[in-house]
Simulated scan of single mutants.
Amino acid sequence: MSLVSLQGVGKDFGGTTALGPIDLEIEEGEFLTLLGPSGCGKSTLLRILGGLEQPSRGQVMYGGQDLVRVPPDKRPFNLVFQNYALFPHMTVFDNVAYGLRVSKTPESEVRRRVSAMLEMVDLTPLGGRHPRLLSGGQQQRVALARALVNEPRLLLLDEPLGALDLQLRKRMQEELRSIQARLGTTFIYVTHAQDEAMSLSHRVALMLHGEIKQIGTPFEIYRHPQSQYVAEFVGDTSLVPCRVIHSGDENAEIEWASGSREFFPHYLSSPWTVGEQAFVSLRPESITIAPGQEGMLGGKVAGVMFRGAGFRYAIQLADGTDIWVDSPSAVSGIAVGDTVGVSALPGAGVLVRADESASAIVDSPGIKQPA
């Protein structure tokens, strides 16, 4: 069931459209992540939801009411930011209790709810400490507890793990997901890190230039990209140029530069044009490699890298395209300079449209390049 509905929401800055129009249904109890590079509009959209930014157009509907003119403190939403904004002169307990006390909640109820929330985020022994004596992860949990203790219908999180080191960030991802599942509160999470989005979310909205380019489950975003941008941003992929020969509702026949032909699925509602230039997106783990020239495509081994969980082979095709193949172990009989054949596993590979906007963000933070 929809909790919040964004209808034609847009935002202009200095006469330039920075966001929108955005139409988005936020479902009750879901963990929805707004993902994209810096400047894509995800934080602006979050601030509009929280009432910290006024949209230039559109409606933010909640319970039949448009919230656009409703101030932040009157909305049943709370926010958690990257810098936590804890009160340094207050203890952990008093930080978490602050909102309840401002709203004149009886002290007995304050103590009950704060104690329960501190237990949930595993901070009960630290209730009497001040924030300066806590680690980054502990401070993050205090900020989360303070936001959740008021029992908001929607929690907005703007890159809350961005200041943490890698290992602590991974642990906090697990805790966030666990807390959201236990409480059932709707989370809207902003990040530029695709690994966070994929591991935390029920759904991901991938944004670029103020627009939602694709929204779906992490599986759908990863396996069913609808454009070059989506395929490149989420995970590693190799994009092999091709030409469309025939298009059906779900599959299309393509021709490689070598002249050979294959069928690949696509996930577009609009049809392909015969002769249209496109790419086949091939994930490294979805390709096999073998000595010789037998296979879907042929090329030469340009490099081999050990990556801990296995080996990555860089293959250069005859047309100069580089592709990457992951293997759990070294492939027998293959060395740098050898001629090899590569093939996609059954059902692997997706036909995607070329997206000129993708080239502008290839080196943006959060985009994981094959290497």
Rank of each mutant, 00 (worst) to 15 (best):
S5C: 09
K11H: 11
T16F: 10
T17D: 00
L24M: 12
E28T: 14
E28R: 15
L34G: 05
G36C: 04
G39V: 06
S43L: 03
I48Q: 01
I48A: 00
L49H: 07
G51N: 08
G58P: 10
Q59R: 15
V68M: 06
D73Q: 14
K74P: 00
F77I: 02
P88Y: 12
V102M: 15
E119S: 15
M120A: 09
T124E: 15
P125M: 12
H130W: 10
L133A: 15
L133D: 15
Q138G: 07
Q139W: 04
R141P: 07
R146I: 02
E151D: 14
E159V: 00
E159N: 06
D165N: 07
L166M: 12
E174Y: 05
A181E: 12
R182F: 05
Y189A: 11
Y189G: 11
A197H: 05
V204T: 05
L206S: 06
G210L: 07
E220H: 06
Y229S: 00
F233A: 03
G235F: 08
S238L: 04
V240G: 01
A257W: 00
S260V: 05
S260D: 14
F263D: 12
F263H: 13
F264S: 06
F264E: 10
Y267C: 06
L268M: 13
P271S: 03
W272S: 06
T273Q: 15
A290H: 03
A290L: 04
P291Q: 07
E294K: 13
R307N: 10
Y313D: 03
Y313T: 02
T321S: 14
W324K: 09
V325H: 03
D326G: 02
I334V: 11
P346R: 01
G349W: 08
D355P: 06
S364V: 04
I367W: 05
